[in-house]
């Protein structure tokens, strides 16, 4: 797991530690993360990685797994 991925895992575990996020590939599609969880997640990610997440990024593909989130963060960090 990369550094970014472990940090994302930490953030998610802080929200709800009953989920094995590393294994999950459909966090949005399976409704493990709902829109309320996303609200906190966005601000956590923006603060932790100093990125700006815009509305255009708000698609399930970017949030379905830790890997997908890490890829989005890396892309936004340029």
């Amino acid at each position: 797991m990369s550094e970014i991925e472990s940090k994302i895992n930490e953030i998610l575990m802080e929200q709800d530690d009953s989920v094995n996020y590393e294994e999950e590939k459909h966090l949005i599609d399976d409704r493990i993360l709902d829109s309320f969880a996303i609200i906190s997640l966005i601000s956590d990610l923006e603060e932790e990685f100093d990125v700006r997440i815009n509305a255009v990024e708000m698609v399930p593909e970017n949030f379905n797994s830790i890997k997908a989130m890490a890829a989005m963060i890396q892309r936004l960090q340029g």
Partner: peptide
């Protein structure tokens, strides 16, 4: 959710509020 909730959640206003309030 797609065209109102997320755009507001990720707007500059919300981001400013988040930084200030946290």
């Amino acid at each position: 959710k797609t065209y109102v909730f997320y755009p507001v959640t990720t707007s500059d206003l919300t981001m400013k509020w988040n930084r200030f309030a946290r």
